[in-house]
Nucleic acid binder design. Structure first.
Length: 572
DNA sequence: GCCGTTTTCGGCCCGACTGTTTTCAGTCG
């Protein structure tokens, strides 16, 4: 089960959606959305809060506190159940289609009784949408495009969701008597940006107790396969999880096999065959005698093939085996290498935590420096002004150049306009220690225009980092149509860093683009883009992406000591 | 439904874009 805060966040968000679909008071729906965000980003676990403490959470008043309490006591909220009875669950899935919001989803349900993305696709094919007021030809086209986008990542879940599920399962199984080891494998261990099926590997002499505990998990909605070596369940959230149990002496070979990727394994097996060996999930064997050569650890298996251990994030058959053979594997950047975070928000704009709360949480991570980069005025909804920005800077300066061992940087996240310009005149920009510049609008301009736009932003002497460079949202929005190689050249030429945004819904730049940018000589900033104290921990996903792009510490400006980063910021 | 150094009632996140309208609703960041 997910943390109580996340469960309540999801329920409140669902209630807000259902209110919007049924045409309830928009401000009321908004109130639930705000409360959902606050609860999700609240550092204390709801399970341990009393009634008074619940109401101290921002945007939670009496009504919502009562609903949270009701959920804690009964496992459901009557008001939510009542609306669920009015609106089939598929209607919310339709809302997940880009360009379809609560009003369109509601109209499609009311007028055509459409309750799933599949039905919607059929209805468009049969030209039935023409009968609904406000739905024209272009609307149908946009919906089809959105459906395709959704289908491309269909069934795959975000890395943070898979990570949380895996952590819960391995914690339960690891405590089962007889369990020697239990760890996630598969694409999650490789930090792919989304996960299809979750693979969990356990080592034990007797698999029965583990399989029994696995199928008895509270999250197990269905048991798909039940055997002695492999059992598969589908969770209540719809994620398929495969558990494989192997004897402890086979652990290394099995972990290697089930971590993949398939292409990496195929290449390893080919190497084995050429050496007169056979590699399987049970070990590395001599073909003639059948004698087992290695299986206990991954290191043993790789070593028997004449290779050093290869980090899982590199196992995509993108040249890692050749590099390993030459002894030229990169010295990958690790989470412990990060000395700071250069893109974060506070409640001055759309964060849910105060400046002081964010600084405390960052200091607890042991950072040597930390940048506060709230939104700039052109993102109008944030209502930023020069006065508010300067007041924040004063508060930051009062805390001193260094606070709890952290050097404090006052930055901003600028908006790159369609021509490549940014908020604020040059003299105001010069007052910042650090400027991140990101695209937040005009996503549909053509390739030449988008490329020119990003290149111009790189050429701005006040811009240090381009934030979430493609602006993609996994499963919801493709990236900008842009000639990335031209942008990479501009970054290398101007000394502008590209961000690896660690938010699990972004992971932008993605791994392959990172590898390409590195070949152009680009530097990177791995940033959380945190909007709450908890999201500072998202850096692990950005690190995974950086590793998949073969980055070492030298490539990542926020792994550098302050003296070197300061020079980088100044020389810009 | 939440909130308050202008308020315990009356506001609340603003502006641009798109596609459908012929004056504007819906969606998005």
């Amino acid at each position: 089960m997910a943390r109580l805060n996340e469960q309540v966040e999801a329920l409140l968000q669902e209630y807000a959606d259902l209110l919007s679909i049924t045409g309830g008071d928009a401000y009321r729906a908004r109130a639930y959305e705000k409360a959902a965000r606050s609860v999700g980003g609240h550092p204390a676990d709801l399970a341990g809060l009393d009634a008074k403490e619940l109401r101290e959470i921002p945007n939670v008043g009496k009504s919502i506190a009562d609903k949270i309490d009701e959920y804690r006591n009964t496992g459901s909220i009557q008001a939510v159940e009542a609306l669920r009875a009015q609106v089939p669950t598929g209607v919310r899935q339709i809302m997940a289609i880009p360009t379809v919001g609560p009003k369109k989803a509601g109209a499609l349900y009311r007028d055509l009784r459409i309750t799933s993305p599949e039905e919607l696709r059929e209805a468009i094919g049969a030209e039935r949408l023409n009968d609904v007021p406000g739905f024209g030809e272009r609307t149908a086209e946009n919906i089809l495009h959105g459906l395709d986008l959704l289908r491309r990542t269909g069934g795959r879940v975000r890395l943070d969701v898979a990570t949380a599920t895996a952590a819960e399962i391995t914690a339960v199984l690891g405590a089962v008597p007889g369990c020697v080891r239990c760890e996630p494998a598969g694409s999650l261990r490789r930090f792919r940006e989304t996960v299809g099926d979750l693979d969990i590997l356990a080592a034990a002499e007797d698999s029965d107790p583990l399989m029994a505990a696995f199928t008895a998990l509270p999250d197990a909605a269905d048991v798909l396969v039940h055997g002695t070596t492999k059992t598969s369940i589908r969770t209540t959230a719809g994620l398929q999880v495969d558990l494989r149990v192997v004897p402890p002496e086979d652990w290394g070979a099995a972990l290697l096999y089930f971590t993949g990727s398939k292409a990496h394994n195929v290449r390893l097996r080919t190497m084995a065959v050429k050496a007169g060996l056979k590699l399987s999930e049970y070990g590395l064997f001599e073909v003639g005698s059948g004698a087992r050569i290695a299986s206990r650890t991954e290191q043993e298996v790789y070593a028997a093939l004449g290779l050093p251990w290869i980090p899982p994030t590199l196992r995509e058959d993108r040249g890692e085996i050749q590099a390993a053979r030459r002894g030229e594997l990169p010295d990958l950047v690790e989470e412990a290498d990060l000395r700071g975070d250069l893109h974060t928000h506070t409640d001055l704009t759309d964060g849910v935590a105060s400046l002081e709360e964010m600084l405390d949480a960052a200091a607890a991570r042991g950072y040597a420096y930390y940048a506060v980069t709230d939104h700039a005025p052109n993102l109008a909804m944030q209502r930023m002004t020069e006065e508010k920005m300067l007041a924040q800077r004063s508060r930051l300066r009062e805390l001193g150049p260094s606070h709890r061992g952290m050097r404090l940087l006052h930055g901003t996240e600028l908006n790159i306009d369609p021509d490549g310009g940014v908020d604020w005149p040059a003299d105001v920009l010069a007052g910042f220690d650090l400027c991140v510049a990101s695209v937040h609008s005009h996503f549909r301009a053509g390739r030449a225009a988008q490329t020119r736009r990003l290149v111009r932003a790189c050429e701005n002497p006040h811009v240090h980092v381009i934030g979430h460079p493609t602006t993609r949202l996994l499963g919801r929005r493709g990236g900008l149509d842009v000639d990335l190689d031209t942008v990479f050249r501009a970054c290398a030429r101007t000394g502008t860093a590209l961000e690896i945004n660690s938010a699990p819904e972004r992971l932008d730049l993605g791994d392959e683009a990172v590898a390409r940018a590195k070949r152009h000589g680009v530097r990177f900033a791995i940033d959380s883009d945190a909007h709450s104290t908890l999201q500072l921990d998202n850096q692990r996903y950005g690190i995974g992406t950086a590793q998949r792009g073969w980055l070492g510490g030298d490539d990542v400006i926020n792994s550098w000591p302050w003296s070197r980063l300061r020079r980088f910021l100044h020389d810009r």
